[in-house]
């Protein structure tokens, strides 16, 4: 997207990005929607119209409406009246976009961060290796391949005996 200078509102895209960085993921509140790489584009039009483009994590994610409304509200809180929130599927969201700082916060929260996705193996029968977020051991077992939300699965660590959630690599 080209860089457009707002004529009526003195608002830079970076200010909007900063505001969106404080919008939590509704299902994992220790990370924000920008940490997760869900916000793909922010533009400020000539008339001060702000357009935010985001991409869903999972197509059936029930939090999409909440995220959409939270984005709109965060931009309105900056004094913007004309806000458009768009969604896009391209490129499809990948856990590779979750930034390093957010991965560390996920780990401290008790969720194993996702492993690199390894593009080109879309249909694989074996799951990726996962490390216990508490003790760091790779001696873990998946106890359920689906978890409390679409983006996670359940594990137990055979070294420290802790059950934990792990992010799917998508």
């Amino acid at each position: 997207m080209e860089d457009s200078t707002p004529s009526t509102v003195n608002l830079q895209p970076s200010t909007i990005w900063d505001a969106l960085a404080s919008v939590p993921d509704p299902e994992i509140p220790v990370v924000s929607i920008t940490d997760m790489g869900m916000v793909r584009d922010v533009t400020v039009g000539d008339a001060g119209r702000v357009t935010v483009t985001f991409t869903p994590t999972f197509s059936g994610c029930p939090a999409l409406h909440v995220i959409r409304e939270s984005i709109e509200q965060a931009v309105r809180d900056l004094g913007v009246t004309d806000v458009e929130v768009r969604s896009t599927l391209t490129p499809p969201w990948t856990t590779d976009w979750i930034n390093d700082d957010a991965r560390e916060r996920l780990r401290q929260y008790g969720i194993a961060p996702p492993a690199p996705t390894g593009e080109g193996q879309l249909i694989q029968l074996d799951a990726e290796p996962t490390r216990c977020p508490r003790c760091g051991s790779l001696n873990v077992r998946m106890t359920a391949s689906f978890g409390p939300t679409l983006c996670k699965r359940m594990y137990v660590c055979d070294t420290c005996r802790e059950p934990f959630e792990g992010f799917k690599s998508v």
């Binding site: 059936g60 599927l89 391209t90 391949s145 679409l150 799917k168």
Partner: peptide, 24 residues
Amino acid sequence: YAPLAEVAAKAVREEKFHVQHTAL
């Protein structure tokens, strides 16, 4: 047809978890 290719690219990433699970 790009819109269909986009939908497929999104959905196939989710479907692989189903295949892993039901195959097992």
